[in-house]
């Protein structure tokens, strides 16, 4: 394998790892706010690394430019969505879970 291919594989693997972390986080974390953390950030990084791997793998100018735009928009829109969810939760009066609460209560 060429160094480029190693790079692509590494990006894809790390991306998959963070996507996995996001999924595990959504299951394990206790409330809507903490889950929004996992869903918004680890997920963004996972997806972004995946797209970066794809951009390197495709290697035609046009598709790479498009992939870079995709990256940019992911970075712009994902936090906005997470913010919207958390804000909706706050408007509903959902109390954030704190370490003082019962363990296991979700």
């Amino acid at each position: 394998m060429t160094p480029l291919e190693w790079g692509i594989v590494a990006l894809a693997l790390v991306g998959a790892f963070f996507a996995g972390v996001a999924s595990i986080g959504i299951v394990r974390l206790p409330d809507v706010y903490t889950r929004a953390h996992a869903a918004s950030k680890s997920d963004t990084l996972g997806a972004v690394l995946g797209i970066a791997a794809a951009a390197l793998a495709i290697q035609t100018d046009l598709a790479t430019i498009k992939a870079v735009f995709l990256l940019t928009f992911m970075f712009l829109t994902n936090p906005t969505a997470a913010h919207a969810i958390a804000r909706a939760a706050q408007d509903q009066g959902i109390e954030p879970w704190t370490a003082g609460d019962e363990e296991g209560k979700s």
């Binding site: 918004s40 950030k41 963004t44």
Partner: peptide, 11 residues
């Protein structure tokens, strides 16, 4: 702030 993990802007 939202992108930096560990912090999430709520409002």
């Amino acid at each position: 702030i939202t992108l930096t993990p560990g912090t999430l802007t709520v409002s």
